[in-house]
């Protein structure tokens, strides 16, 4: 049985050149580099990366034109939401029946609606409601959804079953119907609309977060984190959630737009903002009978909704890339 320890012809230079070493290494069938382990000298062309992660992210976001434009637009919306009521050319809740359904003109840029209210003023004043509702509803849904989804995904077992079956039950009812039911129980009003929209969108977030965590949890780097003795909380917050972050952020920005749409839908149904307070969806709902006589009454609030939703979606896309070190635009 001596075949196995006999040395063979081997012209490859080897570390530890004694024949004994050669004997041991030949069986590997691979060439060993001679000398020491290659030392990776500091390469002058590869400079240190800036420490600041946020700076890197900002650079990448800036390079994405659509995201940048969206960010500017959303910033403008926020400014309008804050100072809106002070800059409207007319009082947005003042009716003037003699001046109803006027097309856009120099006095009324977006025309007037069926009650003679200035649409431009109303669209500006409505920004605050739409943005607040969007952000608040998403915050409610996001925090609850992330916590529930993370627990379900990470813990597994019966905890997972209980949480997810509850979510399935909520998903079984169409969300707008569930929101209307909640509104019926809570009463009319914008604050209740926020709560209703927030609650009904929890399952979407919980499901997405759970699904992501299930797949991330299987990675070796999570096992590695266990081996080096990290606590479960630290593993969730430092290793699991950051890797689910891009999906969560994209979903949240899309969520803001769908919350804005839901508010509009509730407003359209007369359940959200109560007249005469201006709100985009409510404006659409009340003007829908005049779509052929005076299309501008629907056009401008509709455009406001579309542009806002689009901006949030594009920003979400940009953020996803910026947050992923691998996809960053260099």
């Amino acid at each position: 049985m001596s075949e196995w320890n006999q040395s063979s012809v081997d012209e490859v230079p080897m570390r530890g050149s004694e024949s004994q070493k050669a004997d041991e290494t030949f069986a590997m069938g691979i060439a060993l580099p001679d000398g020491e382990i290659p030392v990776y000298e500091h390469d002058e062309t590869l400079h240190d990366k800036p420490e600041n992660q946020w700076l890197e992210m900002w650079r990448s976001l800036r390079a994405n034109r659509a995201a940048l434009v969206s960010l500017v637009f959303i910033t403008a919306l926020v400014v309008i939401a804050v100072i809106g009521p002070y800059i409207t050319p007319y009082n947005p809740i003042e009716t003037e029946m003699s001046n109803a359904l006027k097309p856009p003109s120099a006095e009324h840029w977006f025309g007037t609606d069926q009650l003679g209210m200035d649409i431009f003023s109303r669209v500006i004043a409505g920004t605050r409601v739409s943005l607040t509702v969007g952000l608040l509803a998403v915050s409610i849904a996001l925090t609850t959804g992330i916590i529930l989804g993370a627990i379900a995904g990470y813990a597994g077992g019966w905890v997972d079953t209980v949480i997810m079956r509850l979510m399935d039950m909520m998903l079984a009812v169409p969300s707008i119907l569930l929101a209307i039911t909640l509104m019926a129980a809570l009463g009319k009003g914008i604050d209740k609309a926020v709560i209703a929209i927030g609650l009904v969108s929890i399952p979407e977030y919980a499901r997405i977060v759970r699904g992501n965590i299930l797949s991330i949890k299987e990675n070796d780097y999570i096992a590695a984190a266990h081996v080096v003795g990290l606590s479960d909380a630290r593993i969730i917050f430092r290793h699991v959630l950051p890797n689910a972050l891009s999906v969560i952020i994209v979903r949240a920005t899309l969520g803001i737009s769908s919350a804005i749409l839901d508010t509009a839908a509730l407003g359209f149904l007369g359940l959200g903002v109560q007249p005469p307070q201006p709100e985009w969806g409510d404006m659409l709902g009340r003007a829908r009978g005049f779509i052929f006589q005076a299309p501008h009454t629907l056009l401008y609030p509709g455009m406001a909704i579309t542009a806002t939703v689009l901006a949030f979606n594009l920003l979400g896309d940009g953020l996803r890339d910026a947050l992923d070190p691998r996809a960053r635009i260099k």
Binding site: K49, N219, D220, Y221, A223, A224, A225, R238, H239, P242, N243, L245, P325, R326
Partner: peptide, 8 residues
């Protein structure tokens, strides 16, 4: 798979 892609 054994290194967290989001950590330096």
């Amino acid at each position: 798979a054994s290194l967290n892609p989001r950590m330096p």
